[in-house]
Amino acid sequence: MHIVVCLKQVPNTTQVKINPETNTLVRDGVESIMNPFDENALEMALQLKEAHPGTRVTALTMGPPQAADILKEAVGRGADDVLLLCDRAVAGSDTLATSYAISCAVRSLGAPDLVIFGKQAIDGDTAQVGPGVADWLGIPCVACVRKCEIAADGKTATVERVSEDAYDVVEAPLPCALTVVKEANVPRMASLRGKMAARKLAIEPTTAAATGADPALLGLAASPTHVVRIFSPPAKTGGAKWEGLEPAEAAQKLVAELKNRKLV
């Protein structure tokens, strides 16, 4: 079996702060990380590899040259091969153009049996690229998967697809795509030998042209959506802050206030 895991390097948005004076993002000291949901996708691929000997896992990313870091991290954890799609031609791509570019990269790897994505990336939060890539590839996609088993004959995947208040047991023929939720697993940490192997790895970037992509479908020009304005969310100012009250006093005051506002 050949599994392709699509990864994205993202700024750690939990560290991003807004400078209240200039109302701009403070990115200083914000590290670049592997998108947390993609870690779960990678872990699912690695667990499938362990369960099905002979399986090969390829980690794929699209991004600037430094995105090679997350591919090295993936190798440290056990990925066999990597593909770094790095091309100015894809700059400004929205989800339509991005999913096209990634679908070409996936296709250039042959015909993988399974393409796994994280549920969404924490910088864009669109959750569109996984299903989009699947559509370009013409394969099914099951989104929000927390469990995946592949039949012994390697022809079908049985997955648990979670929704807001239930889960479905779904059977999908391979090849197919999955997007993975956090509760699927606990991502492993890289091993020492894996890290050593990753350190020696020289990752050569691949261009979109080399993956057979049609330049007319890439980048800003091929992107229907445009960001026309970026602004900071209006800051909500806090209301009353009670400090130095005894716990019982604060509690009584709160309950009185809630009753007063007819909230309880």
Binding site: V16, V227, I230, S232
Partner: peptide, 15 residues
């Protein structure tokens, strides 16, 4: 919202 809600983006799909 984007970037975990740190910024808001206004997006159009003109054509």
């Amino acid at each position: 919202p984007a970037f975990g809600g740190n910024i808001m983006a206004c997006i159009e799909c003109p054509d």
